[in-house]
Write a protein that binds this DNA or RNA. Structure first.
Lengths: 154, 154
DNA sequence: ATTGGTGCAAAGGATTTGCAGTCTA
DNA sequence: TAGACTGCAAATCCTTTGCACCAAT
């Protein structure tokens, strides 16, 4: 983030963000619009901490509590998708098209894997009384030649 | 846990547990054997909290720190698999055969989905410099006719 | 003796919550 | 003005860590 970009380039327009929030039945408050603009600017995976930092770059705009509450709300409403790959934090994915993920267990990086080319078949039907909410596919990656672990050899 | 079961029925034999630990290059201390016996008794998904409760039913045997350290060690060594489906806790899976999971987002229940019948194809190759560590498939379930949320409408 | 393992309590980190002040319809 | 939202700080919850004691080689 070393260079300045015009607001209109760096972020989704305020108008559009308000519009999208309304579509998802979310009251467009100032803070929610700020966060939505960031998220909707492009497909990305961000943590609450990152949103907190991004939205408050130049000056305080949104408090930590509101960032957490807002991301939770967005996820419940379907504006973004939670990605559960790391037990220590939640990623929020602004790409809500059906897709899967590469996740590097060493660096914590996340990449999208488009669902178009992937064939996932033969899944058993859900247990009685339940319906499928979503299907996650996470391909966990490891760098080649991993650094020697604290594990010993037999 | 209202009925008593003989130790030999409820748990994997101590001999076998020691043996398995050795196979995984884990020094078989008393505490690790206790935990391994529980885990290996059957395919199951347990949290650290549950292990803590199970292993200490009749009398204190293993401390909380040791339960956490031991489960982490077992996972690193490959004796059990961590299942990351809930951002608030880790499940440890004593079934290390290739398989996938149903996860009820309402009740937190986990079921195994055998990998035999599932066809997962067309995955793109991993990014340069990385190799696939594992592939998780999580089918998130929701009870039919979910209870009304605390969400507001515009 | 040395090394590793355990237990306790304290620390840590992400997320949630209580509550008073603020905004908006 | 009422109902909703925000911000701050305190509280929670799961997990990790520091460190002294214990165990096994």
């Amino acid at each position: 983030m070393s260079h300045m970009l015009a607001e209109t380039e760096r972020r989704t327009s305020k108008i559009r963000a308000v519009d999208v929030l309304r579509q998802y039945a979310i009251a467009p408050t100032q803070q929610r619009v700020e966060i939505a603009q960031l998220l909707l600017s492009k497909p990305q995976h961000v943590t609450a901490e990152q949103v907190m930092a991004m939205v408050n770059v130049d000056r305080p705009r949104v408090s930590k509590a509101t960032v957490y509450n807002t991301l939770g709300l967005f996820a419940r409403k379907g504006l973004v998708k939670e990605v559960i790959v790391d037990p220590t934090k939640i990623f929020y994915d602004s790409n809500i098209d059906s897709h899967y993920h590469f996740y590097c267990i060493t660096t914590g990086q996340l990449w999208d894997v488009g669902a178009e080319t992937v064939q996932l078949r033969g899944l058993p039907p859900p247990p009685e009384g339940a319906v499928v909410d979503s299907v996650d596919v996470i391909i966990r990656l490891r760098p080649i030649a991993p650094p020697p672990e604290t594990d010993e050899v037999v």
